[in-house]
Simulated assay, not measured.
Amino acid sequence: MAAGTLEGRMLIAQEPALHCAAFTPEAETGPSLAPRRNAPSDEPAHSGPPLADDPVLGLPAGELDHPDPHAAIIAAAHNGRYEQAAAAAAIWEKAALRSHGPGSAPAIHWLEVRAELAHLGGEPALSCRLWLAAARVRLDVGQNPSDPDVVAAVDRAQHQFHQIPPTGEAWQLAAEVLRLRQHVPSGQNRVLESLEARVAQLRTSASGGPTA
């Protein structure tokens, strides 16, 4: 029940952009992860080195023909090659950081792509960390806590947080998720309450007390 208000479908489209559905039961589709109108820069998200230049990825040649790297990354993710897809996204994020700097639209874009890929690869803790990082960067460059992109990043971070087993890793992330959630209210009902309940459960577990 804790994550019920944030559940939604993840969609990856067969086009040069990663898409994800909004984390609401009603939504059928969601915004592209390409840089949005409110992002701090209008630089293209695919500014960086050619994907084919990295032989470590080992992607079939046919997947490297598209000039936009998203096509190859999506193909890799569709085929279950999440590590390859994540490695490619990390390469492009580093290129965006070099070319445009931290806080630029391309750098934020690739950070969010990595967060989505971590989710698809079954790594909720990593996905949570990356969505938290994206939210922090957006706030650091001056985006308002009510900005839809900031809210979406925190919503997705919380959604992933609820998927982490009740281990030390979840406890390590709890304070940061709660801090950002309190600073960035969600448009969903009772989202903060569900998070506070999860954090309380983790706190009880960490102290060795009863979990009920």
Rank of each mutant, 00 (worst) to 15 (best):
A39W: 15
P40S: 04
D42P: 06
D42R: 14
D42L: 10
D42E: 05
E43K: 03
E43A: 15
E43F: 14
E43H: 14
E43W: 04
P44F: 08
P44Q: 09
H46Y: 11
S47I: 00
S47R: 08
G48L: 03
G48V: 02
G48S: 04
G48T: 11
G48M: 04
P50A: 05
P50S: 01
L51E: 06
L51T: 00
A52N: 00
A52V: 13
D53C: 00
D54M: 05
D54P: 03
P55Y: 06
V56A: 15
V56S: 15
L57V: 03
G58V: 00
G58A: 09
L59A: 13
L59Y: 11
L59I: 04
P60L: 02
P60M: 04
G62S: 01
E63Y: 06
D65A: 14
D65Y: 09
D65M: 06
H66R: 02
P67I: 01
P67V: 05
P69G: 10
H70A: 15
A71Y: 06
A71K: 05
A72D: 06
I73C: 09
I73V: 12
I73L: 13
I74S: 12
I74N: 15
I74M: 02
I74E: 13
I74P: 03
A75H: 13
A76K: 06
A76H: 05
A77C: 08
A77I: 02
H78R: 14
H78K: 11
H78T: 07
N79E: 08
N79H: 12
G80V: 08
G80Q: 00
G80N: 07
R81N: 08
Y82N: 01
Y82G: 11
E83Y: 00
Q84D: 15
Q84N: 13
Q84M: 09
Q84F: 02
Q84V: 07
A85W: 03
A85G: 06
A85P: 07
A85S: 06
A85Q: 07
A86F: 08
A87M: 12
A87L: 13
A87N: 08
A87F: 01
A87C: 09
A88H: 10
A89R: 03
A89V: 06
A89L: 01
A90P: 04
I91H: 09
W92I: 06
A96V: 00
A96E: 07
A96R: 12
L97I: 11
L97C: 01
R98M: 08
R98W: 11
R98A: 14
S99E: 15
S99Y: 12
G101E: 04
G101Q: 03
G101N: 03
G101D: 05
P102M: 07
G103W: 00
S104V: 08
